[in-house]
């Protein structure tokens, strides 16, 4: 299946995760952008208006949960779908912060794509 040219913004510091996510997402037709810390992610979210933001919790300057809360608190960014994608077993905490979905690392291509597609209501 081929996705639309939708934009996924990922907040992540691990180059290996970035490399894999870019590979999988772009192969399915998504555009990708990456931020290394929470504050950079917030400004990029306002500027780029991604369709989906995927964030690790443990990122510098502002953690992923705070990023999620900020996005959901503001009219301008509320519509951005947020996936918390973390090494921490923090599903409840992520959902409480307003995340639309939670995924546990490591990267599993099928689950990552399926989650993004479901959030964007893309048909198979």
């Amino acid at each position: 299946m081929t996705g639309h040219a939708l934009l996924v913004l990922m907040v992540e510091r691990n180059p290996a995760v970035i490399d894999l996510a870019r590979h999988f997402l772009e192969r399915y037709g998504f555009r990708t952008a990456f931020a290394e810390d929470g504050l950079a992610a917030l400004s990029m979210a306002v500027e780029l208006r991604p369709d989906v933001l995927i964030t690790e919790i443990l990122v510098p300057r502002m953690d992923g949960l705070a990023v999620c809360r900020q996005l959901k608190a503001h009219e301008l960014t509320r519509a951005i779908k947020v996936v918390v994608f973390s090494v921490l077993h923090a599903r409840e905490r992520a959902l409480a912060a307003g995340a639309d979905a939670f995924l546990l690392k490591p990267v599993q291509e099928d689950r990552l794509l399926e989650t993004v597609q479901q959030l964007l209501a893309i048909d198979g």
């Binding site: 691990n14 953690d63 921490l88 905490r93």
Partner: peptide, 12 residues
């Protein structure tokens, strides 16, 4: 998890 997110900085 509470301690990790509130009082501990893990950094690579």
């Amino acid at each position: 998890e509470d301690l990790l997110l509130e009082s501990i900085l893990y950094r690579d």
